[in-house]
Design a protein around this nucleic acid. Sequence first.
DNA 1: CTGAAAGCGCTTACAG
DNA 2: CTGAAAGCGCTTACAG
Lengths: 335, 335
Amino acid sequence: MLTIKDIAKQLGVSVSTVSRALNNHPDIREETKQEVLEAMKRFNYTPNALARSLIQRKSNTVGLMIPDITDPFFSAMAHDVEEVLSENGYQVVYVNTSRRPDKEKRFLNSVMERKMDGIIVTPDFLDDDAKELLQRLNIPVVFLRRRPPEELNMPFVDVNHYEGACRAMDYLFSLGHRQIGFIGMPRYSFTGQERYRGYMDSLKKQGITPAPRGISWNGRTIECGYKAMERLREELPDMTAVFAANDLLGVGALEYTARNGVAVPDQISIIGFDNLEVTDLHWIKLTTVAQPRKEMGRKAAELLMQMMTDNLLTADSITLETQLIVRNTCSGIAR
Amino acid sequence: MLTIKDIAKQLGVSVSTVSRALNNHPDIREETKQEVLEAMKRFNYTPNALARSLIQRKSNTVGLMIPDITDPFFSAMAHDVEEVLSENGYQVVYVNTSRRPDKEKRFLNSVMERKMDGIIVTPDFLDDDAKELLQRLNIPVVFLRRRPPEELNMPFVDVNHYEGACRAMDYLFSLGHRQIGFIGMPRYSFTGQERYRGYMDSLKKQGITPAPRGISWNGRTIECGYKAMERLREELPDMTAVFAANDLLGVGALEYTARNGVAVPDQISIIGFDNLEVTDLHWIKLTTVAQPRKEMGRKAAELLMQMMTDNLLTADSITLETQLIVRNTCSGIAR
DNA sequence: CTGAAAGCGCTTACAG
DNA sequence: CTGAAAGCGCTTACAG
């Protein structure tokens, strides 16, 4: 490996001079600089970023910690995070935690060791150890698609799940529906809770007493949606619409109707949440609530950039709005 | 930031001793070691990986260069790459090239500067500059889902696209089809070419002269598949089956039939390639050829690990087999 | 087993 | 404008 020293020797100048040329320092004669630069090109010299980082206390690296890159949500966000960060000269180290607490902590530790300049995280577990680690990092941290605990004075970028759910419900109300079932994600999930809250509050605002039998808690998969729909149809025969807390559940519900000869939207309306790509498929055309997933990644990266350049450990959070996507699975009630 | 020096001072020992404790060096008394380790814990000391890497010439970092993390293929592979590498103490720096040559080169440069220990790449462009860069890196490189050019003596992990295509065609032949249309991806794409080759050779082996009008080159999207199917039906009215070079195209073809009242598989059989998740949807159930995408990521990472630990710049490539997934879009021909 | 010293490849005051 | 020197936080022979 060629070093700055080799270049200096070749040219009969000092390493300081070479360094100055490399760093575009003003204190160097233009000619000297050109000579040095040319020699570097000639010898295929590449600066050692490690040495540089060590002395400058800046690694130009940021960490991205997500549960699962395989989830279209996270991959969309990861895409944009990388895009804006790499444009700004940062490299991004990514980690799938697979929702494992030990892996989350391991990553946080390597963030310290590697002297990363900032991180974007979507943790699933945040015990006291992890919180302390996060605090001790002493670098900008932004939470993505999740809110940080109160004690951690760190910004987040997330969507307003609650309002999104209200939007879905209001649309259903506007079509005349009153008996609306709910297919939920696992109870412990943050987004699941928020969307449920939107469902409940909307109902109450309309003076409708939620029917406990009209609420089904499940997993987050198509199969879960299928089963939930089956149950709901039995439990609540006069139900005219269903709000599925995510699209996979919605697609599952739709599959149930398709297989069992239930006409959608004529006999029952279905609305989802997320606007996954599949929902736009010809056979599906699920009406749903969209989240700006790419924008979330972009905003998170921009926020982090700002914090890193301004040397801020906190900043204002960003809450993005959802959008109703009307397709073919909801219609007015005809009675 | 606490350093090794601070710990040494606190304990009244030399930095060498502290370093030895940190690195589990044998030349240290067990008691001393424990004392040091304890002090480190007490003071929340974290070693600086940058300094370490600089001196050890090993950054414990590997690069992953892919076109687009948003593509389910690449995200699946990225997931497994990260998993095996992080288990082995490596961090992975990932980059979306967005199929831009300048970004590919920029990444390769940062691989040099950052002194990464190895990389896994799926380049789209490989001009002479890029090839030279790759060569000069002088670290293990494995190509993922793409073959390297001959001059580059580097291993790859890929699927046998050609055989996969033959598998699809043989299945169609076994059902009695002779007039088989082809919906291809862009001509320049490596995988597209291989799958086309499989189509052509299979036809020839059966003594069938390929009908040029039965071949349609398109993009890689659902819409492209839709349009291609439309054209193919006009150009080749007696066509009984279609081989779509990827699933998105196959789904598009299927959408055409659904919208235009063409019964599948009764009037026409359709087979795809990739086994994307959507193909298993109730409305689709596309017969297709599966690629072991997660396994590909895993294998690539394992291969790279092996090369890094054995200090090898080349190794044997790995070709994975495809698998026919029979669902509902193909049937025997009734005449 | 322990310590002093050199050095990894750079940058950054400090003189001149 | 240029160079000599110190130093970033470590590891690694080399003595003892």
